[in-house]
Design a protein around this nucleic acid. Structure first.
Lengths: 103, 103
DNA sequence: CAGTATCCCATGAGATACTG
DNA sequence: CAGTATCTCATGGGATACTG
């Protein structure tokens, strides 16, 4: 994500990081469940292809918005949860959630 | 903006409405200045084409995020300001602004 | 189960010129 | 000054099949 002199606006940065077709939904679920297994998350979002859901998750990992936890064994078990820093956003996201529901 | 059964999440709705390449910046300016003339706003964002800036503004109008005020005369004078409802977002956007600056 | 590899397409946004 | 009209292109995301 490029970040030039004219885009040094924290708000833009945040919205860029949090937007994306499925990221808000992912956040929504992770704020409710704390830790979700990949397959569970996928089931809650039936219209995304696995590829795209993984893309979104990987981007969010890169940006330290979520964390990936792998538990060894077969079949593989992978969980996702919010990153520490992201929890600060709780109050903000709640306001947005309410505001968005009335729009 | 389509809004199907699987996307009925206020957070998604909000982020969809507020994101867009230049919308966060527009919000940033309007939260600081209350009312800005189009040409002024454009000058503060030198890298957008007029067409695109207008597109973003018009979408934000449609979604009742901002208001357009036209003052008669020639040359035309058009101002933009936040819509009432949008001001509720102040606290949320501030959190996001701070968070985004540290990312 | 979790993740990759391909191929395809719609849409957002850039450049530029024009108008009332 | 504010706004429209064209044309162009990158990229985000969809469908599907495959792998460790």
């Amino acid at each position: 994500m490029k970040y030039t002199e004219f885009e040094q606006c924290g708000l833009k940065r945040s919205l860029d990081l949090l937007s994306g077709k499925w990221k808000p939904l992912i956040l929504h679920h992770l704020f409710h469940e704390k830790e979700i297994r990949f397959i569970e998350l996928w089931r809650k979002m039936p219209k995304v292809s696995k590829k795209v859901l993984l893309e979104q998750l990987h981007q969010m990992q890169e940006h330290h918005i979520i964390e990936r936890i792998e538990k060894n064994g077969f079949p593989p078990q992978v969980y996702y949860r919010l990153h520490r820093d992201t929890k600060e956003l709780g109050p903000a996201l709640q306001i947005l959630d309410r505001w968005g529901s009335s729009k």
